[in-house]
Amino acid sequence: MKIVNGISMLDLEMNMAGNKQVIHPTLLHDEQHAVLVDVGMPGSLDEIKAFMEKAGVPLDHLDAVILTHQDIDHIGSIQEVIKAAGKSIDVYAHAEDQPYIEGDKVPIKMTPEWNTQMLSRLPKEMREQAEAMLPAPTSAKVTKVVSDGDVLPFFGGVQVIFSPGHTPGHISLYHQSSKTLIAGDATVSIEGELLGPKPTATPDMPLALKSLKKFTGFDIVRVICYHGGLVENDVNEQFKNLCHSFISGKS
């Protein structure tokens, strides 16, 4: 789906331990260059290539991948994408999540304790099947470490917003010229309504809510939520109301 000129939202099917849903990496592009924000689960390369071709963007136009954070549904196909690009491409991420992305540490949501907690929410008859479907860890070298406030020199400027809580090094991205927020998992949405971070997948909710408040300092026309897709209805007001509701204990 093309959001505005130069920004396209991908629709990838994800199957995580038997739970099927659609996730939304983002493609920033022009006639010569492209940057992919997150790369889906392992095995997503064919879907990514098909989407890029449909958008008129050959894979060899890809110059960089920006990883919003360490979770497997965001970094799973990174090695496939790097190899398929057929050239050296940069991988951007925050320093706090770098050791998890590079494989020096086990991702915080792939530890045995986390997997047990996740599987415990499933009906007993589904647990064994789901356990067998848990993805193996993946890793890639982070070539560019980003910090809060950095403006990446892509397509009119992409500002990094450090938004930890969902993971220690979670980042969101603000495309300045189109006023588009690529939220990663800092917030989810359903049918155009922003809901904030998902508690069951967010180890540090107080920090995640503090990060959410950062978005009220930006003039945002639209949000791309990795889980939930595009939100364009009164985005600034939604963020203000959402933060107020969390502070008031109503959500």
Rank of each mutant, 00 (worst) to 15 (best):
K2W: 11
I3W: 08
N5S: 14
G6M: 06
G6R: 02
L10W: 08
D11L: 07
L12P: 00
N15R: 02
M16L: 15
A17P: 03
A17Q: 12
K20C: 08
Q21V: 00
I23M: 10
L28P: 01
H29S: 13
H29V: 01
H29K: 08
D30A: 10
Q32G: 04
A34I: 03
V37K: 05
D38L: 11
D38Q: 14
V39K: 05
V39Y: 12
P42W: 14
D46P: 01
E53K: 14
E53T: 03
E53P: 01
A55F: 09
V57Y: 05
P58N: 09
P58A: 09
L59H: 08
D60L: 12
H61W: 13
L62I: 01
L62S: 04
A64N: 07
I66T: 03
T68G: 08
H69F: 04
Q70R: 08
D71L: 08
I72Y: 00
I75C: 06
G76C: 11
K87P: 05
S88N: 06
D90Y: 04
Y92K: 03
H94M: 13
P99I: 05
V106N: 01
V106G: 03
I108K: 04
K109M: 10
K109A: 03
K109I: 00
T111G: 07
W114I: 00
W114F: 12
N115R: 03
T116A: 15
Q117W: 08
L119F: 05
S120P: 02
P123A: 11
K124E: 14
E125R: 10
R127K: 12
Q129F: 06
A132M: 14
M133E: 15
L134H: 01
P135S: 11
A136D: 15
P137M: 08
P137H: 02
S139N: 08
K141V: 09
T143R: 06
K144L: 04
V145T: 12
S147I: 01
G149Y: 03
G149A: 07
L152Q: 03
P153G: 10
P153K: 07
G156F: 13
Q159V: 01
V160N: 02
F162H: 11
S163K: 00
P164Y: 09
P168R: 11
P168A: 15
H170E: 15
S172W: 07
H175N: 05
Q176L: 12
Q176I: 13
S177R: 04
S178A: 11
K179V: 01
L181F: 10
I182R: 07
D185G: 04
D185C: 06
A186E: 09
T187R: 00
V188P: 00
G192M: 05
L195K: 10
T200M: 13
T200Q: 13
A201L: 13
T202Y: 06
P203A: 13
D204T: 02
L209G: 03
K210W: 00
F215N: 06
F218E: 10
D219G: 09
D219C: 04
V221H: 14
V221Q: 11
V221S: 15
V221G: 14
V221R: 14
R222N: 14
V223N: 06
C225P: 00
Y226E: 06
G229R: 05
L230K: 09
V231F: 12
E232P: 02
E232Q: 10
D234I: 05
N236C: 13
N236W: 07
F239T: 00
N241W: 05
F246G: 03
I247M: 13
S248Q: 11
S248K: 09
G249E: 14
G249I: 13
G249D: 15
G249Q: 15
S251H: 10
